[in-house]
């Protein structure tokens, strides 16, 4: 892998500057069954196509952001920082990732 990844803060940078945290997943909000839990912890969609994923600019601005990347070509269609859900109060446990659901789910 040697593609360029556009960091929302720093612009296009070598992918080796980043840490990859995998697909954006949906965390269970209630006690899940063992099967649901295993699926959340260990199973990924692994699409051949565009997926939404977490990246961390470890050797740069140290910000987490989400990217939409085509896993077949490594073309990065978009990247964006996630926004705090509310300024004053904490979100409830049912909160999903700020940018909505994984488009591949």
């Amino acid at each position: 892998m040697s593609f360029l990844l556009p960091c929302p803060n720093c612009g296009p940078r070598d992918v080796n500057e980043f840490a990859y945290q995998g697909e954006v997943t949906k965390r269970p909000t209630q006690s899940p069954t063992l099967r649901e839990l295993s699926s959340y912890l260990y199973f990924r969609e692994n699409v051949a196509g565009v997926q939404r994923e977490w990246w961390y600019h470890r050797l740069g601005c140290q910000a987490w952001f989400q990217a939409e990347r085509d896993t077949r070509t490594n073309e990065v269609l978009a990247t964006e920082l996630t926004e705090p859900v509310s300024a004053e109060g904490a979100p409830g446990p049912e909160a999903t990732p700020a940018l909505g659901e994984n488009p591949t789910l």
Binding site: A19, Q21, R27, W54, Y56, R58, Q62, A63, W64, F65, L81, T82, E83, P84, V85, S86, A87, A90, P91, A95, P97, A98
Partner: peptide, 14 residues
Amino acid sequence: IEWFDWWNAVWGFG
């Protein structure tokens, strides 16, 4: 610190 920042982003805590 990466862990803290990640969950901060996931949950949208400011």
